[in-house]
Design a protein around this nucleic acid. Structure first.
Lengths: 363, 363
DNA sequence: ACTTTCAATTTGTACGTACAAATTATGTAT
DNA sequence: ATACATAATTTGTACGTACAAATTGAAAGT
């Protein structure tokens, strides 16, 4: 190795920054001090510092001193926003991206895109790639937001470096940041209320356990049940993960289980329409025998004539709101106004009205 | 101004490069020569050269000399591929992008995305944005590929600058470049052949006139008709544009017109399923009264139970093939192998077999 | 309490020397 | 003619000095 002296000094300063002994914006030793410390001439020290300035790690002001740069990037805006979502094949993501792209393009910003396929390893790779290619800010749809996330180190260093970070659809619980999302708790409450008000008392639910939206929609449904003096039991819920869904969760046993209920709350339309198809294949009629209510109000229509009653997902609006928020954040680093879209339910013909009695809210 | 000496020297060298007196790859004067020429010390000259090296204009080799860099851009790969498509909301684009993203991410490349909404002004904006943000190559789905394109200046300067440029789905006729696409001419031939072989002789067609795919599929259908000794008349074709389709092209007059035919060739599924819905609303049965064949084989299913017979669009495969081709082009600038996907037809139940006579191919 | 002035500190510019390391050109031996 | 050793050339590292320019903080003045 036997490096040159100035390389030794440069590496030493780098280490100090990495170790955290020198923080962003902090002043480093003066050239004279370093010269004395290492026993090298001031010129050699200057060469070391000069190389680090070129790397963008330091900046110095005549008469004042040399400082650690606040962030590697702030020098020039690249006018590119990094967007990381789980999928693009789904029914809502293309719309979200469309909404974003429109706003970003209007403001002469480009969009850099990566998908995580809801896998944290892909999320890591996506974040690292985008950090390398110098984006101005990050719009991220969390991956497995309800589970411990191994990429928190990256998110934290990202925040430390001053990158605007905005989450859509959900946010990580351990990371207090700005978000643009559907109010999932109220959404859960709304779909429970809807079937309850139409007389349903035996209510089954499908919720995702790896996304925080599943937790929140469950919590909302729970809120609603308690307000009505009801209680959701563990048996009334089917928790599933992304992988479970991909493998397929419907079988004979589940069919038998569902026969004890009159209504089903679905985490989203992807599940709801699969359920609908499954039920019709096994001659269980919707909504006569079983009512279904869901979330997303996607316009993909199954083979049946049933249109599922569901809460509307803002999609385009969510995308454009996220883009607008991000552009605010890029300009004002202090901007931290989250957007929560209030749920709105659109009626289809998937819920049967079985009004037992008028005003019969108590048991 | 009264600049520092090293700034004077640096500016002088810059001028020499700009004036063309020093060309890319050429060796500049030695430090000793410059020192003598300016009457400044070698250290001062070194400082000037050092600043230009940091700007990326020069590079020097110990023992050999200092040289003008070949080009500003090729020095560092940004590992970002620019992708410009018309839409993302459609049924095929999310899949194409998905296929691309997978391959690019696997090779640690990021994807920068913009949509043109099939408008040349948006295409221009997208190209300009991407040129600014330093991408390594362009994957472009042409906008209104059949009409004269006002952005040819940008495409030409892009090629001149040595950017790899790859077109998907279609290509501009005036621009000889690499492409990855479905063989649209054969596709047109295939759908014509399919209905012809099932006895249809009164064949109507819907083709887009602003995309070259429309022209090619029409040409293919024409090829087929001639081989069968038939002739497509002008009255047998409905030419439409992106705007026409958005406004809606189906009306009573068209319905009357279609009653003279037994089969319809559709440019793509977006049109075919709208046509299907329109026909059913007006009590015209498919395929009993009118057969439909189309292109894309999208899996979105209309309210009816009809599944339209159509040529499969490669989608994911096309996306990943495009990404792979682009990565080849980035590595080898000479790479110019286009990929043409051969059409494959998947049968639904939208075409009636009206075999008039066996082997009755003449007239 | 506020401003002004001035000195000390710190980085920036400029020149000089010396030798090391890599490349290139030259000359010599085979 | 080819291979090898050697010299010359050219950039890289390192130290030194000197002064300029900008900032900072303390002292002095109002």
């Amino acid at each position: 190795m036997a490096n040159a002296k100035y390389v030794i000094v440069a590496n030493w300063i780098k280490e100090q920054i990495d170790k955290g002994k020198l923080r962003h914006g902090q002043k480093i030793q003066t050239e004279a001090q370093l010269s004395k410390q290492f026993g090298y001439s001031r010129q050699t020290i200057r060469q070391a510092i000069s190389s680090l300035i070129n790397e963008g790690l330091l900046e110095s002001t005549q008469g004042s001193g040399t400082y650690v740069r606040k962030s590697k990037r702030s020098d020039q805006a690249s006018r590119v926003i990094g967007v990381i979502t789980t999928y693009n094949t789904d029914y809502i993501f293309p719309r979200i991206l469309g909404g974003m792209e429109e706003v970003l393009a209007d403001h002469e910003y480009a969009m850099q895109l990566a998908f995580t396929h809801n896998r944290v390893s892909d999320e890591r790779r996506a974040l690292e790639l985008m950090l390398q290619s110098n984006v101005d800010g990050f719009i991220v749809e969390p991956t497995r937001s309800a589970l411990p996330n191994p990429n928190m180190d990256l998110y934290h260093s990202l925040i430390d470096q001053g990158y605007p970070l905005l989450f859509i659809n959900a946010s990580y619980q351990t990371l207090p940041t700005v978000h643009v999302a559907l109010d999932d708790r109220k959404t859960g409450k709304m779909i429970y209320d809807y079937v309850f008000e139409r007389g349903h008392r035996k209510i089954f639910s499908f919720f995702k356990y790896d996304d925080i939206q599943g937790h929140l929609r469950y919590a909302g449904a729970n809120d609603a049940s308690k307000l009505h003096g009801e209680q959701i039991n563990d048996d009334d819920i089917y928790w599933y993960s992304t992988e479970d869904f991909e493998k397929g969760i419907f079988d004979q046993r589940l069919l038998e289980r569902l026969k004890n209920y009159t209504a089903v709350l679905c985490y989203n339309d992807a599940l709801a329409y699969q359920l609908l198809e499954f039920l019709e294949k096994h001659d269980m009629h919707v909504p006569e025998e079983l009512s279904i209510v869901s979330v997303d109000h996607s316009d993909f229509i199954g083979k049946s004539n049933i249109e599922i009653t569901s809460v509307v997902h803002p999609m385009q609006k969510l995308g454009s709101a996220a883009a607008k928020t991000m552009l605010e954040m890029v300009q004002k680093p202090s901007y931290n106004t989250s957007v929560d879209f209030q749920p709105r339910l659109v009626e289809g013909n998937s819920v049967k009205n079985i009004q037992i009695q008028i005003g019969g809210q108590d048991e």
